[in-house]
């Protein structure tokens, strides 16, 4: 009885993962197809990868995407940390929860609406659409995410830690840099990486606010796919997937290795 239940549970889990990963694996497999379409596997080739690396235009777009992601995630993290600390320090519960709600609405509201409203804003202000408008909008939609990732860490921190630091002579800036920041650092990293991934795979917002020949990967792949599918996209997707997988695994090994020892903890 117990045994069959376990088999069922494991089987179900495996099935779920197979279904989730099947499209990616399918896409990866066909990136090596010499047939030139996604109908029938004719033979193994690295032709699509070759073609990809000789396509400078596509490589520049990849680079653009990375640059936008890195800059926007960095700025969003800095602003988000400041925002989270400020929200945390508001003494009146009413105002604090009000600000928090405003923050959360931005996280859950559909990208299409955010994208459209940015487009309206930028046109109204006369900001030309291109690198700068994409960067600004990516920073803007990343900040609320960073705030949400950091707030729990701040809440978890005992307020006497701040008192203690002040008591030992630390000025406000020193309290922040020597006590609060090290404490919330895991949350800051989590916020940064989430902002990074949100920016990397954003399609909707970028689609609205880009222009002037500036493109990010998501928008480019979309327009390529509309023209008819080239297996070059499969090759590119495979590479991105491999890099993401490597990053996740690397993060996993680093975080499990650095876990504090719990033996002989208290008393």
């Amino acid at each position: 009885m117990e045994q069959t239940k376990k088999w069922f549970a494991n089987g179900y889990l495996i099935l779920v993962f197979v279904i989730l990963y099947a499209p990616i694996l399918f896409l990866t497999a066909y990136s090596f197809n010499s047939g030139g379409s996604m109908v029938g596997f004719d033979g193994f080739t690295l032709e699509w990868y070759q073609e990809l690396f000789s396509d400078t235009r596509l490589l520049i777009i990849v680079l653009n995407t990375l640059v936008i992601a890195l800059i926007s995630a960095t700025i969003a993290t800095i602003v988000g940390v400041a925002g989270a600390v400020a929200i945390h320090n508001i003494e009146k519960t009413k105002y604090r929860s009000m600000l928090l709600t405003l923050n959360n609405i931005l996280v859950v509201s559909p990208d299409v609406i955010i994208g459209a409203s940015f487009l309206i804003l930028f046109t109204m202000l006369g900001i030309s659409l291109g690198f700068f408008s994409v960067l600004l909008s990516h920073i803007a939609f990343s900040i609320p995410i960073v705030v949400i990732m950091i707030l729990p860490k701040l809440k978890e921190m005992s307020p006497t830690l701040v008192d203690a630091a002040q008591d030992l002579g630390a000025s406000q800036w020193q309290v922040f840099s020597k006590v609060i920041l090290p404490y919330i650092l895991p949350g800051v990293f989590a916020g940064f990486f989430t902002a990074l991934t949100f920016s990397l795979d954003d399609f909707a917002v970028t689609f609205f606010v880009t222009g002037n020949g500036f493109n990010t990967l998501a928008v480019e792949v979309y327009s390529l796919a509309r023209q008819g599918i080239s297996l070059k996209i499969n090759a590119l997707s495979t590479i991105i997937f491999a890099i993401t997988l490597a990053l996740v695994l690397g993060y996993y090994f680093l975080s499990t290795r650095k876990k504090p020892k719990t033996l002989g903890g208290t008393d």
């Binding site: 006497t160 008192d163 008591d167």
Partner: peptide, 14 residues
Amino acid sequence: AHLRPVNTVFQDYA
């Protein structure tokens, strides 16, 4: 607080 010649031992040690 940070300019006072006083130091505190906290209840939760902090």
